[in-house]
Amino acid sequence: MSSPAEPLLSVRDLHTSFPIHSALLRRKVGEVHAVSGVSFDLPAGRTLGLVGESGSGKTTLARTVIGLERPRSGQVLFDGRDLVTLSGRRRGAKAAELRRIRRQIQMIFQDPYASLNPRLTVRQIISEAWMINPGVVPRHRWTAEVNDLLARVGLNPDHADRYPHQFSGGQRQRIGIARALALRPRLVICDEAVSALDVSVQAQVLNLLVDLQADLGLSYLFIAHDLSVVRHISNQVAVMYLGKLVETGTTDQIFTAPVHPYTQALLSAVPVTRPWAAPPRQQIILTGDIPSPVSPPSGCRFRTRCWKAQPRCASEEPVLAHRLGDHPSACHFPELPAQPQPAAVGAR
């Protein structure tokens, strides 16, 4: 792993939870522990893939990083400054500083239909960013700047005055990307950014994201449930299960030598297009579903679905640490996969 000294984004022991209120008296009756103690680093100019099932908390993690949810505790360090402590105030120097930093973190949403305001033209959607953040782009430059952004994401600038419904799904996602780029961010969070697209269009958008990263030096926090896509675009991968990271490492480490049983199960569940040509793999079919984050299992959260679970797993929580191989995992009994996993040869 070639990590520069100072990571762009550094998340430390982050906890985010949502209260559950009773219907009648609105009293707090419980808590959904969506993110419980997550730490990771994202170096500048790199892509961290975040994978996990729905209910793993990966979207909440992303929303906490970008400030749509307030964490209960922990740190979100961007360029060394903690956004969580800065976000206490509405006015003053701290609030201004927070706005300046937040501007550098943008997001691309999953649904290209729901994430664009249907009542605004593409030009208005993109320039809204500058309206909210005066001083980034002077008003007389807006037209030119919108045209530049549209061209950059592969859309015709002549169509800037059309409404979102006049574009196809793939084009809408490009508009969403242009909006995310409007404030010249350094970190872009892609929350299932290509999942809703048709296969042929998904490849176009993935290539676009790769090109933008090369041109603009962006960092991506790339959230997806499709492991093939994550492997394709990421330098590093973090596997999340029920609010916690269970294994992190470089893309090659995670995909060729996963040691956590959940990572192994996840990888073995990925459908292969040519099963007859693929090396024989150990098919692990997990039973059951991810447990409720309201009352997660004691000890290791994966133990209820794990075929290797021992009494120790229920009593002692495995922390994310270097155990086997050269990357951190959170399992008391890490093992390299029985059969060699498909080799992740070559690099982009």
Binding site: L68, F109, L116, R179, L183
Partner: peptide, 9 residues
Amino acid sequence: YVDATRTLG
């Protein structure tokens, strides 16, 4: 899209 606007600040 409201969230998207929120993330713009």
